[in-house]
Design a protein around this nucleic acid. Structure first.
Lengths: 126, 126
DNA sequence: CGGGATCCTGCACGATACTG
DNA sequence: CAGTATCGTGCAGGATCCCG
């Protein structure tokens, strides 16, 4: 068993389909959208304002994709003008802990990463 | 407290820097690379073969970025021809559980997501 | 208010060829 | 073996305008 044929333990087969799914859920904005929606239902522009830097088009795309994947629900409220509420679904909730853990990880290890970056960049001048 | 000024609980401020960090670590290939390296040290081409579909250029870029962020270590072994071994760092290990959980989540909820997708797509024909 | 339609640009990523 | 260099392309994602 050389190193070109690695041991295939439980989840080593995870590649195409699983990666594609993660791409849909953990893409540039989706993770932040889900995080916001975990706090409670939000409407489009409120959501938009709570995520600085997101373009309207990108947010729309992100929401559509999350809706398609069953992570969020889109509720249209027929007032004038129309209101649309987005809320996280049960399936979406199953990701909440992971998202929290992920975001927590960034805050916890941000400085270590910064140090590593500085070391790496400094080593290039050698 | 209207919905335009959301409650800012503990991690609501996570945006630019944190999102950028997650982008570097959870990008298209990095997550899979880290997953493979958690199983043990790997060499370039072995790693490549264990991740179907990755282009050599992309793998190089991914490894460089992970190295810069202190997630993996690059060890050059001066033989003929050269061998280069990649191994996960201590900092990288702190992500292992999250990665496992993430990959596990995809396997667990893949069918639910598929159902949601079918429902969504079917609703478009209405 | 909540988007859809367009235009535009960068860069992420793949393919191919070459090197110490 | 482990890359670097170069080229080509799609498409993600921003900016802008418009509509029910």
């Amino acid at each position: 068993m050389d190193e070109t044929t690695p041991p295939e333990d439980s989840h080593s087969q995870i590649t195409s389909a699983h990666r594609e799914l993660l791409d849909q859920v953990l893409d540039k904005w989706s993770l932040l959208v889900l995080d916001r929606l975990c706090e409670g239902p939000r409407r489009f522009n409120g959501l938009r304002r709570s995520i600085p830097g997101v373009a309207q088009k990108s947010l729309t795309a992100s929401l559509r994709r999350l809706e398609r994947n069953g992570m969020v629900e889109r509720v249209v409220i027929h007032t004038r003008p129309v209101a649309v509420e987005y809320r996280i679904s049960a399936l979406g909730r199953t990701l909440q802990d992971l998202i929290d853990a992920l975001l927590l990880w960034t805050t916890t290890h941000m400085t270590e990463v910064d140090n590593a970056r500085n070391r790496f960049d400094a080593a290039l001048d050698t």
